[in-house]
C-alpha cells in the first residue's frame, strides 16, 4: 500500500478540479497539474523545473510575486481576490479569460527549503452572477435617479456619476470634461409663454441634447431649473469644444420660438460653459465644477448663445 502512496498522491494532485502549482524554494515549478495544462496551454514538460517567472513573466512585480515571497520567506499564506486582482494568470476557457481567486500557501518539505502551493479557482460563474445582481440593483436605483419632468438623470445621479468619473479619470490618467448648459432667458420664456410651455421646452431640449450622447459613459443630467450638466469622460478640451458647439447648434436647430430672447434668431438658444481636467493634471472635483460654472457665466455675459471654456486649477 505504501509504495502506491506517492504515485496516488501525484495522480490526485494532477486530477483536482482547480489550478494547482507547486514552486520550490528557488521559485522553480515543481508541480503543475492537468487543470493548469488545460487552461494555460502549457504542458508539464514545458514548465517543470523552469523558473516560474520565465513561464509567467506578466506576473513579475505584482501581487502574485509578493504572495510567493510571503509564502516562501515569511511562511504566511496570501489570498488574491478576483475583485482586487483582475484575472492575473493567463488562463482561458471557451476563449474567455477565466476569472480567478488565488491562494498561495507555504508548504513545509522535510529536508528541503520551503515550497509553496498556488491554487487558482475559477470564479467566473460567481462573477457573472454578481454582475447581474449589480446591474439589476442599478436599474432599481436608476428609477430614483431620474428627473421627474425630463426623464434624464437628476442632480443626485449627477453627483454620484461625477464622483465616480472623477476618480476613474484620476486613476486611469485620462482627461475629463464637464459641460454646463443653460437655456438663455428661460425666466422670460416662462413669463411670456406660461409654465406649461416652459416645461415642454425643457423636455424637448433635454431629449434632443441627451440624444447626442453616444457613449454609455457619457451622462447628461438636469442640474438645476433650466440648467443641464454633461459629464464627458476621456474627452479633452478640443473634443469638448467640438461637442459644445454641436450642442449649441442643435438647440437652436430645434427652432423653438422665443420672442423674449436677446438673440437675433428669436429662437430658444443655450449658453455652454466647459471645463476640462487634463489627463496629466487632475484637479479637485469642486474646482472642475466651479470652472465650468464660471465658464457658463462668461458665455452668458459675452452675449449668450455662446460657448466658453475655462481651465480648472
Amino acid at each position: 500500500m505504501n509504495s502506491l502512496r506517492l504515485p496516488l498522491l501525484e495522480s490526485v494532485f494532477s486530477a483536482v478540479n482547480l489550478g494547482a502549482i507547486v514552486l520550490d524554494g528557488q521559485r522553480r515549478i515543481a508541480l503543475w497539474n492537468c487543470w493548469m495544462t488545460k487552461h494555460s496551454g502549457l504542458a508539464h514538460e514545458q514548465v517543470l523545473g523552469q523558473d516560474f517567472f520565465s513561464v509567467c513573466p506578466e506576473l513579475r512585480g505584482g501581487r502574485v510575486e509578493a504572495a510567493i515571497q510571503y509564502a516562501l520567506y515569511n511562511n504566511f499564506p496570501s489570498l488574491l481576490s478576483q475583485t482586487l486582482n483582475k484575472a492575473p494568470f493567463a488562463l482561458y476557457a471557451r476563449d474567455e479569460r477565466i476569472q480567478q481567486a488565488v491562494e498561495v500557501t507555504p508548504i513545509a518539505v522535510e529536508g528541503a527549503p520551503r515550497h509553496c502551493l498556488i491554487q487558482v479557482s475559477d470564479v467566473s460563474i460567481a462573477v457573472a452572477r454578481e454582475k447581474l445582481l449589480r446591474e439589476q440593483a442599478m436599474v432599481l436605483r436608476s428609477q430614483t435617479f431620474a428627473d421627474g419632468l425630463t426623464g434624464i438623470a437628476n442632480r443626485r445621479h449627477f453627483d454620484v456619476a461625477m464622483e465616480k468619473e472623477h476618480r476613474r479619470a484620476k486613476r486611469g490618467g485620462t482627461p475629463l470634461s464637464l459641460l454646463m448648459i443653460d437655456i438663455d432667458h428661460f425666466k422670460a420664456y416662462n413669463d411670456h409663454y406660461g409654465h406649461q410651455k416652459g416645461d415642454q421646452c425643457l423636455i424637448q431640449v433635454a431629449a434632443a441634447l441627451a440624444d447626442m450622447l453616444k457613449r454609455p459613459c457619457d451622462l447628461m443630467a438636469r442640474y438645476g431649473g433650466e440648467e443641464f450638466a454633461m459629464i464627458l469622460p476621456e474627452t479633452d478640451v478640443d473634443k469638448a469644444l467640438l461637442m459644445a458647439e454641436a450642442i449649441r447648434a442643435r438647440a437652436q436647430a430645434l427652432a423653438i420660438p422665443h420672442e423674449r430672447n436677446t438673440d437675433p434668431s428669436q429662437l430658444v438658444t443655450v449658453s455652454i460653459g466647459i471645463a476640462t481636467q487634463k489627463a496629466d493634471a487632475p484637479v479637485e472635483m469642486d474646482a472642475l465644477i466651479g470652472a465650468a460654472d464660471r465658464a457658463l457665466y462668461q458665455a452668458k455675459r459675452s452675449g449668450r448663445n455662446l460657448i466658453a471654456a475655462i481651465q480648472p486649477i
Partner: peptide, 10 residues
C-alpha cells in the same frame, strides 16, 4: 457580496 467579502479578506 460574496466577491466583496473575498476582497475584504484580501
Amino acid at each position: 457580496t460574496e466577491m466583496e467579502q473575498e476582497a475584504m479578506c484580501e
